[in-house]
Nucleic acid binder design. Structure first.
Length: 602
RNA sequence: CGGGAUGUAGCUCAGUUUGGCUAGAGCGCUACGUUCGGGACGUAGAGGCCGCAGGUUCAAAUCCUGUCAUCCCGACCA
C-alpha cells in the first residue's frame, strides 16, 4: 500500500468513526434540571442536551454532540461557498497590530480588539487576535494582485474570531470567541462587485434554508457606497438582540437603523382650533418624561426639538415626543456627510437655553421636521429659555415649515414603504451579513491593480460573514418543545437514534445491533442508546437531545413482529415489520431530506 | 462602564434575617437487591477550603470590610 492510499484509508476510517456511536461509549452529559445561569431557551437546551459547557463568560466548549452539529453547519456553509465559486483559505488569528493602525480600526474597535505584546528576544511584537479579517486579506491580496487580469475572485475561510465583548450574554449567542465564515470579494468594477454580492446573497439563502432556519434578509445601513449595499440575515426569535421592521404583506424588511416608513407628507396648515400661545414655568423639567409628568400631558402632545450638528452647522430636528430621531435619515435629509448631536455650547448659542428647553419658536437655526410634527395641534415645546416651555404651539402661526421628512425610527403600525401593508417590529438574531465595502481597505492598505491602460486603481471589495455558532444557537432558540431540541435532519448531530428498550433481552439487543450495523453500513449518522436504563429515562433523553428519527426496539413490539419509528416532531410512532425496519428508516430519511431540500432556493 | 441579583455536594436549592452541637434535602454518582414501554424502589455508601482574603467574636456558611466570579437590565456591538 503506498502512502496516498494509506492516507485515504485513514481518512475513510476517521469518517466512519464520525458516523455512528454507542451512547455508552461517548460523552453526552444530559441534565434533567435547568442550570440556574441559563435564561434563554438555546442556552438552557444546549447545556441540558450536553452540547456545550461554559469555560467562562463568553467562552464555551463544544462537547461531542454540539461539535457534530457545529461541523455539519460548517460543512453546509463550505459546500455552498465552494458552489458559489469562493476559494477557501485559512488566515492567522494572530495578527500584527500595525495593520489595524493603518486602517484606523484599532481606534474604531477600541476595547473590543483583543491585543497584547509578546516578547521575541529583545523585541516586543504588538499583536491582535483577529475580530475579522479585512486587514489580513486585503494585505494578502495587495501583495498577490497586480493586474486586472487576476480579478475578480472571492476568498473565504471558516475560522475562530476574537472580540472582547463588554457584555457576553445569552449563552452561545454572544461570545468573545466564535466561529465565523468570512468571505471577501475583489473586483475591478461595481458590476463585478454586484455579481459577487448577489452570488453570496443567494448562497446565504441556500445555506440558511438548508440549515432549517427561518431567515429574513433585511436591508441594513449601507455605509460608504449607499443604495442597496448591505443586508443582514436575521433569524426571527424572541430573544434576538436586534429589532427588525417587517411587513408581512409586501415582504419589506429592514433593520431599525435603516427602515423607511411609507407615511405620506401631511398638509402644513395651522389648526382650526389653535389656542393662544402661552409660556409656562417648568423649573428643572428638561426631559420629555418630566414635562409630561409636570404638565400632565402625553408625549404625543410634545414636539421634541433636537439640535444636531450637520457638517458643523447647527440644525433643529423636530420629532414627536414619543418618537426617536434617526441620524441616518437626518443626514440624508440635510445632505450632510456627518451628523451628530450638538454640544451644549452650540445648543446654548442657537436656543439661548441649556439642554432640554429647545423649541422651534424663535430658534436661531434652520428647522427640519418629521411628517408627524405639523399635525400636532396646540403642541408643547421648549421655550428656548431655561426652565420654560411653551404650550399651544401651532405650525404656520408660531413657526414656519415648507415641507416635512421621514426623520424618525419606524414604529409598529407605520405604513410599509412599499405602498401597502403595515410595519411590525420583530426581534431577530443576526446570523449573516453581506456588505459592499468599496475601497475603504484597499485604499488604506494599498491593494491596487493596473488596468488595460496601465492606470492604477484601488480594488473594489465586498465582505460577507456568517456566524456559524449562531446557526446552531438559532436552531436551538427556535426549534424546541417542552421536552427538548427538535433538530432539522441536515444539522442534527445524528440522524437516527436506535433505542433498544431492554438491553438485557437478547432478542431486542440482537435486532438493535443488526439495525444499527445496517444503518451505519448505509451511511446513516446513527447513535444507539445501548445504556442499561429504564425506557422512560431513555425516551426523555432522546427527546432532549432531539435526534430527528427514533427507532425503538422493544419486547412488546417484537411480540407483534414490529419496531416503532417516530420523528421527533410527531406524537405517534409508526409501526414497521421487523424485516422492513432498516428499509423503512432509509425511506423515511430520504423522504425527509427531499422535503427539506424543497425549501432551498435553486 | 452604570443599575440589579446570586455564589453552600456534579445539578437544583434550604440554612444567613436573630452567630452556637458533627452543614442539610431532592436529583445524580458507587455497590447489592427488587424492578423494567415516558426521568422506578429499598438498603448501604462516597462526595463540602459554605467563591476567595482579611476582620469582629469564646464561637462565623451566618456579622463587617475588601476582592473575585457568574447571571439579568441598560450603554456598547467592524
Amino acid at each position: 500500500m503506498d502512502l496516498s492510499s494509506a492516507r485515504l484509508n485513514s481518512i475513510d476510517r476517521s469518517c466512519e468513526r464520525m458516523l455512528h456511536v454507542r451512547w455508552s461509549q461517548t460523552l453526552i452529559p444530559t441534565m434533567k434540571e435547568v442550570p440556574a445561569d441559563a435564561e434563554v431557551p438555546s442556552h438552557q437546551l444546549m447545556l441540558r442536551a450536553g452540547l456545550i459547557r461554559q469555560l467562562m463568560a463568553g467562552a464555551y466548549t463544544y462537547l461531542p454532540l454540539g461539535y457534530r452539529a457545529l461541523r455539519k453547519a460548517e460543512e453546509i456553509v463550505r459546500q455552498e461557498m465552494d458552489a458559489a465559486g469562493a476559494l477557501e483559505i485559512h488566515m492567522p488569528a494572530l495578527q500584527p497590530i500595525d495593520l489595524f493602525n493603518r486602517t484606523g480600526r484599532k481606534e474604531a474597535f477600541g476595547n473590543v480588539l483583543i491585543n497584547f505584546e509578546v516578547k521575541r528576544g529583545d523585541k516586543k511584537i504588538h499583536c491582535a487576535l483577529g475580530p475579522t479579517h479585512e486587514e489580513v486579506v486585503t494585505d494578502l491580496v495587495a501583495k498577490l494582485v497586480s493586474t486586472y487580469r487576476q480579478l475578480p475572485f472571492t476568498l473565504y475561510q471558516i475560522q475562530t474570531k476574537f472580540r472582547n465583548e463588554e457584555r457576553p450574554r445569552f449563552g452561545v449567542l454572544r461570545t468573545s470567541e466564535f466561529l465565523m465564515k468570512d468571505a471577501y470579494s475583489f473586483a475591478t468594477n461595481v458590476d463585478d462587485l454586484n455579481k459577487a454580492y448577489d452570488s453570496m446573497y443567494h448562497a446565504y439563502c441556500r445555506i440558511f434554508a438548508r440549515c432549517g432556519i427561518e431567515y429574513l434578509p433585511v436591508e441594513a445601513e449601507s455605509g460608504p457606497i449607499g443604495g442597496d449595499a448591505s443586508h443582514e440575515f436575521m433569524c426571527p426569535a424572541g430573544n434576538g438582540e436586534d429589532s427588525i421592521v417587517h411587513c408581512r404583506k409586501t415582504g419589506y424588511a429592514a433593520n431599525l437603523e435603516r427602515a423607511e416608513t411609507g407615511r405620506t407628507p401631511p398638509k402644513i396648515a395651522t389648526s382650526a382650533d389653535a389656542k393662544p400661545l402661552e409660556k409656562v414655568h417648568t423649573p428643572n423639567v428638561g426631559s420629555i418624561e418630566a414635562v409630561c409628568k409636570f404638565l400632565k400631558c402625553q408625549p404625543q402632545q410634545l414636539v421634541k426639538t433636537l439640535i444636531y450638528s450637520a457638517d458643523e452647522k447647527p440644525v433643529a430636528v423636530l420629532v414627536r415626543g414619543d418618537h426617536e430621531a434617526n441620524e441616518g435619515k437626518i443626514r440624508r435629509a440635510v445632505g450632510a456627510k456627518k451628523v451628530e448631536l450638538a454640544s451644549p455650547e452650540v445648543i446654548l448659542q442657537v436656543t439661548g437655553a441649556p439642554v432640554g428647553f429647545a423649541g422651534p419658536v424663535g430658534i436661531k437655526c434652520p428647522i427640519i421636521a418629521d411628517h408627524d410634527v405639523p399635525v400636532i395641534a396646540n403642541a408643547i415645546t421648549g421655550a428656548n429659555e431655561g426652565d420654560h416651555h411653551v404650550i399651544n404651539v401651532n405650525v404656520g402661526r408660531d413657526y414656519a415649515l415648507d415641507k416635512t421628512f421621514d426623520l424618525r425610527n419606524a414604529v409598529a403600525g407605520d405604513p410599509s414603504p412599499r405602498g401597502e401593508g403595515t410595519l411590525e417590529m420583530v426581534h431577530g438574531i443576526e446570523i449573516g451579513h453581506v456588505f459592499k465595502l468599496g475601497t475603504k481597505y484597499s485604499v488604506s492598505l494599498d491593494a491596487n491593480y493596473i488596468d488595460e491602460k496601465e492606470q492604477k486603481h484601488p480594488i473594489i471589495m465586498g465582505c460577507y460573514g456568517i456566524g456559524v455558532n449562531r446557526i446552531i444557537a438559532s436552531i436551538c432558540e427556535t426549534r424546541y418543545d417542552a421536552n427538548g431540541i427538535i433538530w432539522p435532519l441536515s444539522i442534527a448531530p445524528y440522524e437516527v437514534l436506535v433505542i433498544p428498550l431492554n438491553v438485557e433481552d437478547a432478542e431486542v439487543k440482537a435486532l438493535a445491533d443488526k439495525c444499527y450495523n445496517e444503518l451505519k453500513a448505509a451511511g446513516v449518522d446513527v447513535l444507539m442508546d445501548d445504556r442499561d436504563q429504564r425506557p422512560g429515562f431513555k425516551f426523555k433523553d432522546a427527546d432532549l437531545i432531539g435526534i430527528p428519527l427514533r427507532l425503538v426496539i422493544g419486547g412488546k413490539g417484537l411480540k407483534e413482529g414490529n419496531v416503532e419509528i417516530k420523528w421527533r416532531w410527531q406524537t405517534e410512532a409508526e409501526k414497521a415489520p421487523v424485516a422492513q425496519a432498516v428499509q423503512t428508516v432509509l425511506d423515511r430519511l430520504a423522504a425527509q431530506r427531499a422535503e427539506e431540500a424543497k425549501k432551498v432556493p435553486t
